[in-house]
Amino acid sequence: SDYEVNVNGIHHRFHNISEELIKFIEEALRRGEDLREIIKKVRELLG
Rank of each mutant, 00 (worst) to 15 (best):
S1A: 09
S1P: 04
S1W: 13
S1D: 05
S1H: 14
D2C: 07
D2T: 04
D2R: 01
Y3D: 00
Y3M: 03
E4I: 07
E4Y: 03
E4K: 02
E4F: 03
E4R: 01
E4H: 07
E4P: 02
N6F: 04
N6K: 07
N6C: 04
V7A: 07
V7N: 04
V7R: 04
V7F: 06
V7W: 08
V7S: 06
V7M: 07
N8P: 02
N8L: 03
N8I: 02
N8K: 06
N8Q: 07
N8R: 04
G9E: 04
G9S: 03
G9H: 02
G9P: 00
I10L: 09
H11S: 13
H11P: 04
H11Y: 15
H11F: 14
H11K: 14
H12P: 00
H12M: 06
H12A: 07
H12V: 13
H12G: 03
R13F: 15
R13M: 15
R13Y: 14
R13D: 10
R13Q: 13
R13E: 15
R13V: 15
R13S: 13
F14A: 00
F14S: 00
F14M: 00
H15Y: 10
H15G: 08
H15Q: 13
H15K: 14
N16T: 03
N16A: 05
N16S: 06
I17L: 08
I17R: 00
I17H: 01
S18F: 03
S18Q: 05
S18C: 02
S18L: 03
E19S: 09
E19H: 13
E19R: 10
E20C: 04
E20N: 09
L21F: 05
L21D: 04
L21H: 06
L21Y: 05
L21N: 06
I22K: 07
I22Y: 05
I22R: 08
I22D: 00
I22F: 06
I22G: 03
I22E: 02
I22A: 04
I22Q: 04
K23G: 07
K23R: 12
K23E: 12
K23Q: 12
K23Y: 13
K23H: 12
F24L: 08
F24I: 08
I25F: 03
I25Y: 01
I25E: 00
I25T: 01
I25N: 00
E26R: 15
E26F: 11
E26N: 12
E26S: 11
E26I: 15
E27L: 15
E27H: 14
E27Q: 12
E27R: 14
A28V: 05
A28E: 13
A28Q: 15
A28R: 11
A28H: 08
L29Q: 04
L29E: 03
L29P: 00
L29M: 10
L29D: 02
R30H: 14
R30P: 02
R30Y: 15
R30V: 11
R30N: 08
R31I: 07
R31A: 13
G32C: 03
G32W: 07
G32A: 11
G32L: 05
G32K: 08
G32E: 10
E33W: 15
E33M: 15
D34G: 13
D34I: 07
D34K: 07
D34F: 12
D34R: 09
D34Q: 10
D34A: 11
D34M: 10
L35D: 02
L35A: 09
L35N: 02
L35T: 06
L35I: 12
L35V: 14
R36D: 10
R36N: 12
R36H: 09
R36P: 10
R36S: 11
R36A: 11
R36T: 10
E37Q: 12
E37N: 11
E37D: 12
E37F: 15
E37A: 13
E37L: 14
I38C: 02
I38R: 01
I38N: 00
I38K: 01
I38A: 03
I38E: 00
I38Y: 03
I38H: 02
I39N: 02
I39D: 03
I39A: 05
I39W: 05
I39L: 09
I39M: 05
I39K: 03
K40S: 09
K40T: 13
K40I: 13
K40F: 15
K40N: 12
K40D: 11
K41L: 13
K41D: 06
K41P: 00
K41T: 08
K41C: 04
V42S: 02
V42M: 06
V42Y: 05
V42W: 05
V42A: 04
V42Q: 01
R43E: 13
R43F: 12
R43I: 07
R43M: 10
E44H: 11
E44A: 12
E44W: 15
L45H: 08
L45I: 10
L45A: 10
L45F: 10
L45C: 03
L45G: 06
L46Y: 07
L46D: 08
L46C: 05
L46G: 09
G47F: 12
G47R: 10
G47M: 14
G47I: 13
G47K: 09
G47H: 11
